[in-house]
Structures are given as C-alpha cells and as structure tokens.
Design a protein around this nucleic acid. Structure first.
Lengths: 68, 68
DNA sequence: CTTTTTTATACCCTAAATGGTATAAATAGT
DNA sequence: ACTATTTATACCATTTAGGGTATAAAAAAG
C-alpha cells in the first residue's frame, strides 16, 4: 500500500476533509494534496506531522513486502 | 531504532564509506551526512534512494514500536 | 437537475534543502 | 608517537518544496 493511499484511507476513516486534516496536522493544504497524490519529493518531517495524527510515522520497511 | 541509526548500521555492515554510499545511492555527500545525523527535514525521495540499496524504503509504521 | 461541498489545478513568493567544496576534527592503522 | 583515512563542520549557489490563493473540476447532498 502506498503512502498516499494510506493517508487517504486514514482520512476517510476519520471523516475529515483535506482542509481539516491539513489544519490539524499543521501543514498547508497544498502539501496534504500533494501527499495524497503521491508526490515523491515531500519533506519527511511534514509527512510525519500528518501520520502522527493517526499514530504512525515514517520508518524503513522492507521493499515489496505488502503489509496486509 | 531511528532512521539515522538504521542507515549507519546498514552502511557499517556493507563496509562502505559515506562518499561511497552517497555515490552509489546517487545523493550528495552532504545529504547522506545529514541523514546519518538525524536531520528531520529531508526529502523523502532522497532517503528512499539510500534505503533502496539495502532493500528498504520509507513507509508508515506504528509509532513507539521499536523494530528490533 | 441544482446547489453545496470537496477536491484538483495553476499561479506567485519565500524559505530552505541539496549539491559542491574547503577546512577541521576525529578515528583507524602502522 | 605519526600518518592515512574517515567523518564533521562551514560556507556559497542553485533549485525547489511548501504556503497561500484563486479558479476549475468533481462529488455529494438536496
């Protein structure tokens, strides 16, 4: 599962809009959209601000192992 | 285990110097050093270029769970 | 269908991340 | 001890990510 899908799914589960999630995470709306659209050149700390709301953070995982 | 420690450990196991790893990964030496020193505002794609050499990539993981 | 809400796209601007290089410090080897 | 190798720090220049905003498209609600 890609990072963008992960965020989209978590946001759907919490029933937040993009502006709401962006505000809660303390990131710009522009950033959150690029995150959900799979932009590769994102800043790690900003991604972590978003994942933190869901109890997650970015870390090294083995490639091509699909988690669930 | 932090990302910086993860990279330092992997690099030690492969017996590469920072310049060697940086070159193999296609990132600047400056970047690799900041990575190993725990800088938070790194670009995700650059981090992935490094982790890729070790068969890893950045992905969401539950917080406070220590892997190994 | 129409209206409302949500999401996507397209700009501009500023801050800062990255690369490069040169020097200093630390570590390893003899 | 000294020397060679590796790593850390400090600077400059270029590129670009991120914030903001305005508009357009799409989805949801009525």
């Amino acid at each position: 599962m890609s990072l963008s899908d992960f965020v989209k799914e978590k946001r759907a589960l919490t029933k937040l809009t993009q502006p709401e999630l962006a505000e809660k995470a303390g990131v710009g709306l522009r950033f959150l959209r690029e995150l959900e659209q799979g932009k590769a050149t994102l800043r790690l700390d900003k991604v972590n601000q978003v994942l933190g709301l869901f109890g997650y953070e970015m870390g090294p995982v083995e490639r091509d192992r699909n988690l669930l």
